[in-house]
């Protein structure tokens, strides 16, 4: 939903980042306003996942140039946990298993950290169970997964549902969903997409990283961006995704060759 006078939530300017000595982002510019859904596409290795990790604060990546402002403040100086508490959420492409740590307890600690930041009171075990039961419905997740260790032994689809459940509990302002559709069967894809659509509102924004139109059929983006060689090389509306689906990325290579930066 585009609304021209909506507030800017996140503003990425000329962002450069590297891992070890390898530059991966080479000047990303992107502005996202409240209420918008953006899709980020591009070949493997074009820098999509790196962008998501840099925004969430992964320590393996260092920012060498540029800035990211989130709701008026400098996001890059904040630790990953601080970023989460103020409303930046990363849905992981590969959610991590944490043996022995109860999923329910993890979700509660995480939710309370965000609630405290928002000035809401912490939920005790009982209140939290009610809250989580209500949100479970959004992703049609079996409550049995709450009693297991975080992501341990979950199937790919279950892990992704658990990610969206976290999004539902944390109520972020900016949710970056990194290939949430990968590893999902058709039914799970529908359920997860419906969950994301229900969570999308005029106050928040979603950045969807995906390779496939099938996700964008279910979650309709306002903008589609194409990344190549660590930059956004083209932006458009949802028809751009359809064009990619038809023509692939070859034109991107040609465009880059023309720029002399393959």
């Amino acid at each position: 939903m585009i609304c021209s006078d909506a507030p800017v939530l996140i503003e990425i300017c000329d962002l450069h980042a590297r891992v070890d000595d390898q530059p991966i982002l080479n000047g990303v510019n992107l502005t996202i306003k409240a209420g918008e859904i953006h899709a980020l596409m591009g070949r493997n290795g074009s820098g999509k996942s790196t962008l998501s990790k840099v925004l969430a604060g992964h320590p393996a990546y260092s920012v060498t140039q540029g800035s990211v402002r989130y709701c008026g403040q400098d996001l890059l100086t904040l630790q990953p946990d601080q970023r989460s508490r103020i409303g930046v959420f990363l849905g992981f492409q590969y959610p991590v298993e944490i043996p022995g740590v109860s999923n329910l307890e993890f979700l509660r600690v995480s939710t309370n950290a965000r609630r405290l930041e928002k000035g809401q009171e912490e939920l005790d075990t009982f209140a939290f169970e009610d809250f989580v039961q209500e949100r479970l419905g959004l992703v049609q997740m079996d409550p049995a997964f709450l009693d297991r260790s975080v992501n341990e032994g979950f199937s790919g689809g279950e892990k992704k549902r658990n990610e969206i459940l976290q999004m539902a509990l944390l109520e972020p302002l900016v949710a970056i969903l990194d290939e949430t559709d990968s590893g999902l069967d058709i039914d799970a894809l529908r359920i997860v997409s419906a969950g994301v659509n229900q969570l999308s509102n005029a106050e928040n924004a979603i950045l969807l990283i995906t390779h496939y139109q099938r996700l964008l059929d279910l979650i309709k983006p306002d903008y589609v961006h194409v990344m190549a060689a660590g930059r956004i090389v083209r932006s458009g509306d949802k028809t751009l995704a359809l064009e990619l689906e038809r023509n692939g990325y070859e034109w991107v290579d040609q465009g880059l060759k023309a720029l002399g930066t393959t």
Partner: peptide, 13 residues
């Protein structure tokens, strides 16, 4: 590092 980052990215210090 990935386990730590995962928990941190959920607001846990």
């Amino acid at each position: 590092e990935d386990q730590l980052f995962y928990l941190q990215s959920r607001g846990i210090d």
